[in-house]
Each structure stands twice: as C-alpha cells, then as structure tokens.
C-alpha cells in the first residue's frame, strides 16, 4: 500500500527533513503520525502524495514507484489520495456544494455522477442542509467536514490528514476523528499527523513517532509521545 525504503530528504536550504525512513502501511490501517514541530511529519506526508520527491530511497504508493514517477503521471497517483489540512483550504467564494463538486470536475468526472456523489458525501459528513452555504458561514468543525467530503469524493484509497483537528475545540475534534474512523471503517487507509494527545491516547491506533527525520517509535495501539 504505502511503503518507504530508506527514504532520505534534504532540502536545498540544507535541512535534512527525513533521514532513512523505513515504513510500511497496509490497506485499511489508521495511523497517527506524532512528533515535535519540524520533526519531518509534513515531509513524510507530502512524500506520499508526491508533493516532494525523496533525495534517496524508494517510496511506493498503490503500486507506483513515486521516486521514478514521471511528472505527467502525478495527477493519476493523486486521484487515489485525499488530503485534509488543518486550515481546511476551502475556496471562499463558492458554496460548500461547489467546493466538493469542484474536486470531481477537476478530474473530469461525468456530470451526472458529480451531482450524485457530491450529495452522497455531503450527506455522509452531515452537511446535507448546508450545501448552499459559503465556507465562512460555517463553523470550523463544519468546514473541516466539508474539506473531508472533498478529500473523499473521488473515492481515494488513502486519506492524508495533516493536523485536521489543530484548529478545533476538543468536542469538535472528536467529531472529526469519528468521521475519519467511519471512513476508515469503509476501507480507506488514514494517515493523520496530530498533536492531540487525548485523541491518540483514547482512541488507540498505530502510532508512528518521528523525530529529527527518523522514526523513533512504531507501535500498534500506541500512546502519544516521543522521546524528548
């Protein structure tokens, strides 16, 4: 599913973001990625959707060797990966419905399917009644639900969530986690970077801790925390 073999990443400014990462994440796993800021979590995640390329080592996602992937093929790899961000990244001037359908239109999905599938995912995330609202008319939790709807609308096999609860209060964060769990339950792999100790400790899953560009701990049903 997702496999990294001795992956290194150095940026041109001299930062060594990843230093020899070996990891394997199977289909339908739910993984928390923890670690201090600047440890390399973001690079780890960007690597999966080929936003960054490894300096050294190999990375396979859904059977694609991303290090050797031609730029032209990148879009097709990404169609199988949904990405969720801390700051939602919704387009401010268009409705929630359009924000979600936009992701399908961008990959030229048939029109009929767009309408059907968009309503389907918006219903699933509980925004059926807010489809006509603009993003700024919704609460933070609702906006994050919309962004999750956008991430799953094209039926990806992996969801990459970069601190999806970072801007949300504890109750709302829990709602978002439960939504991700539901998506995971339906067969989608979830990789979620988080600083939320309560969630990690109360909803036990595989925990990968990264520090200074290396995996320092990899435990199933692990606790929050890293070495220092």
């Amino acid at each position: 599913m997702i496999e990294m073999q001795d992956v290194w990443k150095s940026y041109t400014n001299g930062v060594h973001a990843l230093r020899g990462v070996d990891v394997k994440i199977d289909q339908n796993e739910f993984v928390y990625l923890v670690g201090p800021s600047g440890a390399g979590k973001s690079t780890f995640m960007k690597m999966i959707y080929r936003e960054v390329k490894p300096t050294k080592g190999e990375i396979f996602v859904n059977g694609f060797n991303l290090g050797k992937l031609k730029n032209k093929k990148i879009p097709y790899v990404r169609r199988n990966i949904g990405v969720v961000f801390q700051d939602f990244r919704l387009l401010p001037k268009i409705s929630i419905y359009e924000n979600v359908s936009f992701a399908m239109e961008a990959i030229e999905a048939p029109k009929k399917l767009v309408r059907k599938r968009t309503m389907e995912v918006l219903t699933m995330v509980g925004l059926k009644d807010k489809v006509k609202s603009l993003p700024n008319q919704l609460s933070g939790g609702e906006q994050q639900r919309a962004s999750i709807a956008r991430a799953i609308v094209n039926n990806p096999s992996v969801i990459i969530a970069d601190e999806p609860t970072g801007n949300l209060d504890p109750d709302t964060s829990l709602d978002i986690l439960k939504l991700l769990e539901e998506i995971n339950f339906r067969g989608t792999t979830i990789v979620m970077a988080t600083h939320n100790k309560d969630i990690v400790n109360n909803y036990r899953k595989r925990v990968i801790a990264i520090e200074k560009g290396q995996i320092v701990r990899d435990e199933y049903r692990g606790e929050y925390g890293y070495e220092n």
Binding site: R78, I81, A106
Partner: peptide, 16 residues
C-alpha cells in the same frame, strides 16, 4: 493560486 493548488491536489491534469 489556491484553486490551482487544490486542483493539483485532487489530481487535475496539467492540461486541465
């Protein structure tokens, strides 16, 4: 810019 980055993220082709 934002729209384009989202399009890229969800897998829109360069041509699109």
């Amino acid at each position: 810019n934002r729209e384009i980055s989202i399009m890229k993220l969800v897998g829109a082709t360069n041509g699109f």
